[in-house]
Simulated assay, not measured.
Amino acid sequence: MRPFDRWAVGLTVPAVLLTTLFYVLPIAQVLVLSVTEPVTGLGNYEQLLGSRAVARVVATTLQVSLWTTALTIAASYVVAYALVQMLPGVRRVALFMVLVPFWISVLVRAFSWITILRREGLVNLAVTGLGIVEEPLQLVHNRTGVIIGMVHYMMPFAVLLIYANLTGIDRRIMQAGRSLGARPMTVFWKLWVPLSAPGIAVATLFVFIFSLGFLITPTLLGAGRTVMVAEYISVQITNTLRWGVATGLSTMLLVAVGFVVFVAMRQPALRAAFSGRQG
């Protein structure tokens, strides 16, 4: 082994140890608890698969995550596309505004949305004051509020992922399309969107997987009316003390996420994104 190879291996050892200590071992403990608590066997999984309550929670989680992903990607693509069209000075200011939410606690953001969306909040005051609606809209403590809060949380991540992809697209392709007589909308749908497919695919996968594990935002904005998997697991651990059920559901969520990643990575757009090629 060459000296450089020995140094490379030596430098990776601390990272491997830390990953094993803080990631692999806790996951292994969860897997063990799921088949040993309260008794050894697969009883926890049988109980989960036969539970209507768990089925409703899983269905709610999938529906909210899909809506969150779709709305986040659509809104983030608009923002990212606008960023690449801006002048450099304006773009720096806009990127700073995109990054600001990273410095604000998720709790602060959730409580802010409660204030904005409640019956006496800014949104309802505006729509009722303008005569758009007669009665205040129910925008919080339900699924609508949860989706709004989750979209707001995920948009900065998606914007940066899509923006990074859009900046790598050769503008001469767009100029060639315009020179051949293509209209602006044709250039957008026939050139920009297909070439940005890898960025869209990565952002979609990231947002969807992250949405499956949301806890604080659904708990506060849903107020118990929109229970997702993470909140259900939290209740089983802290309130009912059903560790076996909680760890079993955690394991099933982990397996589901792994399956989603496996299937997604077989798609050409994602393979192109991770190999550094345009779709």
Rank of each mutant, 00 (worst) to 15 (best):
A53H: 12
H152M: 09
V187F: 08
R6W: 14
I132P: 05
P184H: 12
L161H: 01
W67N: 11
E135Y: 08
S196P: 09
A126I: 13
W192K: 05
Y23P: 00
V140R: 00
A110L: 02
D170E: 15
T238I: 14
S34Q: 01
V202A: 15
G224A: 08
L71T: 01
A70S: 10
Y81M: 00
A74H: 06
I162N: 00
I200S: 02
S65I: 09
A246M: 11
A75Y: 03
V98C: 08
V202R: 00
W243C: 01
N239F: 06
F96P: 01
P218Y: 09
L253P: 10
I148F: 09
V140G: 02
I209S: 11
F102I: 06
G43W: 01
I27C: 06
P14H: 06
A264E: 09
L270S: 07
G89W: 08
M185I: 05
A269V: 08
A246T: 05
G213S: 13
A75N: 05
M265W: 10
V257P: 00
A256V: 14
W243F: 15
I233Y: 00
I114M: 13
I173W: 07
P198F: 03
Y232A: 12
F208D: 03
G213W: 02
V261H: 00
G181T: 11
V16F: 12
A223E: 13
R6D: 05
E120S: 14
F157Y: 14
Y163E: 11
T19E: 01
V106M: 06
T167S: 11
L48Y: 00
S34G: 07
V193W: 08
G121T: 04
R178A: 15
D170H: 02
V245D: 01
V32Q: 10
W243R: 01
S250F: 04
A110C: 07
L122T: 10
R171W: 06
A75T: 12
V261Q: 10
V93F: 14
R2N: 14
A197G: 12
I200V: 14
M252H: 07
W67G: 15
A197S: 14
G43E: 10
V13M: 12
T68H: 04
V202L: 13
I209E: 02
S76Y: 09
W113P: 02
Q47N: 13
G10K: 07
V133Y: 02
Q85E: 15
A55H: 06
L42N: 03
L99A: 15
E120F: 12
V261A: 12
V140M: 05
I104P: 09
V227L: 12
V54K: 03
I104V: 15
G244V: 10
P3Q: 04
R119W: 04
M155D: 04
R91G: 08
R6F: 14
V159C: 04
A272N: 14
V13P: 00
V127D: 12
L25T: 10
R6P: 01
H152D: 07
F4I: 13
I209Q: 03
T69F: 03
F259E: 07
A53W: 04
R6Q: 13
T68F: 12
M228I: 10
L270Q: 02
R56W: 09
